[in-house]
């Protein structure tokens, strides 16, 4: 399963032959009296050079990852507990959400229930969970609106880049 957070890359990687294929094949000098051999199969090679992932499979993985999100603690609009005023917002906790939801309207339950399911699923997949997401979730029940839309994130909160293979070209 793909965890999108794992794909976060924070350091540029050194290029490969495939990264310069188009330069070697399409740029550079051609002199009129010379002959450019036309290369059969070159288009196939160029398409092979990169993995194109715009597919239904990708969309479904996005949807799946999205369905695991905590959309409750939105950065901009009010959260459901807040819609019901301060007392509810302060007393409602993660554990108590379901119980409280029962006493609310069906509409509210519609919104809360998927969140509960998500939380349960979350527990099951915890070992794969990313630090950043855990941190965000751990905080949000207490401070649901504390994050501005473009929050400055301190270094420790940033996703770590995976160790990258270094090549000689990187340091030159």
């Amino acid at each position: 399963m793909i965890t999108y957070d794992d794909e976060v890359v924070c350091a540029p990687r050194a290029g490969t032959l495939y990264d310069v294929l188009e330069l070697i094949l399409d740029r550079g000098m051609v002199i009129d009296v010379f002959v450019r051999v036309s290369l059969v199969g070159i288009e196939i090679l160029k398409v092979d050079a990169r993995i194109v992932v715009a597919s239904v499979d990708t969309y479904l993985r996005f949807a799946e990852a999205c369905n695991r999100l905590d959309l409750e603690h939105d950065v901009r609009s009010k959260t459901v507990p807040e819609l019901f005023g301060g007392p509810v917002a302060t007393t409602i906790g993660r554990a108590g959400a379901k119980r409280t939801a029962r006493s609310l309207t069906d509409k509210v339950r519609d919104i809360l229930t998927p969140e509960e399911e998500t939380a349960a699923e979350e527990e099951a997949t915890r070992p794969r969970d990313h630090t950043r997401e855990r941190a965000a979730r751990g905080r949000s029940p207490q401070r649901p609106r504390s994050r501005p839309a473009a929050r400055p994130r301190d270094e420790d909160d940033r996703p770590r880049s995976r160790p990258r293979r270094r090549t000689e070209t990187e340091d030159e």
Binding site: R13, A14, T16, D19, L23, M29, P159, T169
Partner: peptide, 29 residues
């Protein structure tokens, strides 16, 4: 790369011969 790492993965290749900065056809007809 650090600034936009969650949106865009950057890669750098080079130093390369200047493939992109030579006039492809230097001889006017």
């Amino acid at each position: 790369a650090r600034d936009c790492g969650d949106r865009l993965a950057l890669s750098v290749t080079g130093p390369l011969p200047c493939y992109s900065f030579v006039d492809p056809r230097p001889t006017p007809a």
